[in-house]
């Protein structure tokens, strides 16, 4: 519907600047576009602005210059637009951020009922289907505190998916997990990518990046140092800094 406006691109970030109140210049003249159904993987050293970029995409951070458009909706000062974009953009956090006072099922149900206006019964049907998809339907009535980190993160993914978003953002979704649990979360993410979900992923999992990404961006100091396919960045990077970073991390 909005294809005429945004072309093939679902996300357009144009010359965005972001300066935190403490003076840190997190994004400088930052531009990128994401195609529908693509998986964009963002890598870079800590403090490079990867997370800030992700958080700007659903309005968790306000930008100081430039423009962001998601699915044809400009992310500006208008509150309705921000809410509209948040409905279309799901986010998964490093620290899960499940609601500890609600059961797993209620965590997944909540936004469907409050934001999408579904009945509890409809919401529960969707939620149970999603919990099956992420492999933990048996934990529906458990509280998040009783789940392992990997299980919590899978619930968080189900919770974001429950809004039927057009884009999913993953902010270092596996960084807080014990090594043996990383795999189960990455599996879910791979399934999503294979189903054609548009994803923007900040990660240190280079194996995942290589396997799943359609496009990769290497960032430092709020700028894009280099972008291209995983193949190009891993084997044939143009910038010395990219090669250096990748050799350190691999």
């Amino acid at each position: 519907m909005n294809d005429k406006v945004s072309g093939d691109y679902i996300i357009t970030v144009d010359r965005v600047d972001k300066v935190y109140p403490n003076g840190v210049h997190a994004l400088r003249d930052f531009s990128i576009q994401v195609r529908r159904k693509d998986v964009l993987v963002v890598i870079g050293p800590s403090g490079s602005g990867k997370s800030t970029f992700l958080r700007c995409l659903n309005g968790l951070e306000e930008i100081d210059g430039g423009s962001i458009t998601v699915d044809g909706i400009p992310l500006d000062d208008r509150k309705e637009n921000r809410l509209e974009i948040r409905k279309e953009v799901g986010m998964v956090f490093q620290s899960f951020n499940l609601f500890p006072h609600l059961t797993v099922l209620d965590n997944v149900n909540l936004a469907q009922i409050l934001v999408r206006g579904k009945s509890r019964k409809e919401a529960t049907e969707t939620s149970m289907a999603l919990l099956r998809k992420v492999g933990i339907p048996e934990k529906a009535s458990a509280f998040p505190g009783h789940l392992s980190g990997g299980q919590q993160q899978r619930v968080a993914i189900a919770r974001a998916l429950a809004m039927m978003p057009k884009v999913m953002l993953f902010d270092e979704a596996t960084s807080a997990l014990d090594p043996e649990m990383i795999g189960e979360v990455l599996e879910v993410m791979k399934t999503l990518a294979a189903e054609g979900m548009t994803m923007v992923v900040v990660t240190h999992e280079m194996g995942f990046a290589r396997e799943v990404s359609d496009w990769m961006v290497f960032m430092e100091n709020g700028r894009i140092v280099e972008e291209g396919t995983a193949e190009k960045l891993f084997t044939n990077a143009e910038q010395a800094r990219t090669r250096e970073f990748l050799s350190q991390i691999l």
């Binding site: 659903n58 309005g59 968790l60 809410l83 948040r86 409905k87 953009v89 799901g90 986010m91 956090f93 620290s95 951020n97 499940l98 609601f99 909540l110 936004a111 409050l114 934001v115 968080a156 919770r159 974001a160 809004m163």
Partner: peptide, 13 residues
């Protein structure tokens, strides 16, 4: 925790 706000906001609440 700030994450509770952010999680709720990111869901469109």
């Amino acid at each position: 925790h700030r994450g509770q706000w952010e999680a709720a906001y990111s869901l469109g609440l």
